[in-house]
Design a protein around this nucleic acid. Structure first.
Lengths: 328, 328
DNA sequence: GAATGGTGTGGAATCGATTCCATACACCTT
DNA sequence: AAGGTGTATGGAATCGATTCCACACCATTC
């Protein structure tokens, strides 16, 4: 492998001079610069990043911890993140937890060992154990999608989005509304979205039957199962159901169609996330668009600001957009 | 930051001994080992990976170049890849080209600079320029999804899959079959799938109208547009159409439904890829399952074998599975 | 009692960059 | 003539690990 030393020898200068050429720092004569550049050109030399990192303590790598890249939300965030980071010469080291929250902790250590310049956490949980760990790791960190004190974060306005969605149903005359949520340890998706729903219902004095509230995980099939449970409540069925993700909503619709129940006539449905498929299923799905790529870009900007010790925003709440389609 | 030197001092041993404890190599007395481990425990010391890499020339990082993580094929591959790699202590450095083939070349350099131990290329093109570059980069490399001489690769049996799909239509009595492809610079998806289609049609002596063959890009909307073009051929319309990806097929169906054309009665449709949505759209889509996660795992195994100079397979062709659903 | 071999340990070189410091020369300025 | 300033360059220390080598000690063995 060709190193700086070789370049220095071949160009007849010292390593210091080569370094100066490489980093365009300090004084270098036009003559020396030309010679060095020529040799670099000829040899195809590239500086060793590890040696560089060892010395400068900078790696130009951002670690990204996420639960999966197989669903649209995280993959869009990563796309936005990657775009913005690569503009600034940074790259992404991927840490996929596969929805295993224990791995979030493990990966934090791993990323620390690798001396990443920053960490972006597309988190699913905000347990104290994690938050404590975040505090003791003194690497710039930005969290996306979840709110947390003392942590810079970029989030969506989950609370108002779900209230808007609920109000949309109410305005259309629905009084019995079901809800398909997820586990509340996921604070943003599980807890806040549920709370928004309850609050809006309460604001209109509407009551909710216990069985209308079901819980799924993050896949389509659990949406089917949840809807099945809701519909087996024969005494009184809701006339509309809100699912906290599009996939859950799609699963719910799929079950209803199988049963010959008309959407939206017999049951109106809405999801959240504006997945690409939401507009192609039948009926097209009413949902909320969250600008995930922008969230990724914002997260990138914040992490870069943190790294460069520039002013940053501790808390960014992104706007959302209700997309009303045929499912309501 | 606490370094090996600190640990050595605090434990009252030399750095050599600390290193031996860390790597469980050479001789270390039980007594010394205990002391060192205790200090490491107390200080929370973690060795600096860059220093290590500089010395050992190993980084335990695999670079992954891909066109996007927003579609299911690459994201599934990366999931499989990541799972297998992390089992072996490797991590993924992500390089997202955003479908820009020029960036594939750039990223190859970037990954080289970072001294990644291996590169996995989820490629979209196999132009000579790229292949030449691959040869001169002497880092273990595996390509997924595209075939290429002199490069270790994991591919799908595109040719036979599309022939099977075509034959399925023919057996059902279709004689006029349309085709929605993509640009042929994507050899696997654009060229081979098209060739398989032509060959199977020819085998049955069936002719193809020029206008039945349309081209899209990799999104749903271009599938709509392509189908629209096919249907404006009023003289003779096909009774079935094969799309080379599920998204194109979904776009096509979406157009047909809008026009009140029945699927599959008036037009049968099939895609490729077994996207999650394929079973939830209406009618459910006939498609081909390619085991993308397994492809990722296989790619991981090959790259690890290459790195460890163990026996590897130059060429892996994965099996596929036809999924017949309501769209035919 | 000398040779052999298994243990255990530390010293020092090394990986490939960056960066501080010393030095040197040319050209002004007072 | 002495001193100051801008330009140009090289030497050497440094980052934090790994690893080869030398050496010391103790227990066998012939």
């Amino acid at each position: 492998m060709v190193t700086m030393k070789d370049i220095a020898m071949m160009a007849g200068v010292s390593r210091s001079t080569v370094s100066r050429v490489l980093n365009s720092s300090g004084y270098v004569s036009e003559d020396a610069r030309k010679r060095v550049e020529k040799v670099i050109q000829e040899t195809g030399y590239v500086p060793n990043e590890h040696a560089k990192s060892l010395r400068t303590k900078k790696t130009k790598v951002i670690g990204v911890i996420l639960p999966t890249i197989q669903t649209e939300t995280p993959s869009r965030i990563v796309t936005g993140l990657g775009r913005e980071l690569s503009k600034n010469g940074y790259q992404i080291l991927l840490a996929n937890t596969d929805h295993d929250t224990k791995k979030e902790l493990e990966y934090l250590d791993l990323l620390k060992v690798r001396q990443v310049d920053g960490i972006v956490l597309i988190a699913t949980n905000t347990e104290p154990e994690l938050l404590n760990k975040l505090k003791e790791i003194d690497i710039p960190l930005v969290m996306v999608g979840q709110e947390a004190d003392d942590v810079v974060h970029v989030t969506y306005d989950d609370y108002h989005a779900i209230r808007d969605l609920t109000r949309l149903f109410i305005k259309k005359g629905h009084e019995k509304i079901g809800f398909i949520g997820v586990d509340e340890t996921d604070r943003a998706v599980g807890y806040i979205r549920k709370k928004g729903f309850y609050d809006e219902m309460a604001a209109y004095g509407l009551t909710i039957e216990k069985q209308w509230i079901q819980q799924g995980i993050f896949d389509i099939d659990s949406g089917r199962v949840a809807m099945e449970k809701i519909m087996t409540h024969y005494k009184e069925r809701p006339t509309a159901t809100i699912a906290v993700t599009d996939r859950l909503a799609i699963g719910a619709i799929s079950f209803l169609k199988e049963q010959g129940i008309q959407v939206p006539t017999d049951m109106a449905i809405a999801g959240i996330g504006a997945s690409e498929m939401s507009q192609y299923i039948d009926p097209s799905l009413t949902t909320v668009d969250y600008q995930n790529e922008k969230a990724g870009e914002e997260a990138a900007k914040q992490i870069l600001a943190l790294i460069d010790s520039k002013p940053y925003q501790k808390k960014i709440i992104l706007d959302y957009r209700l997309i009303e389609r045929d499912s309501v």
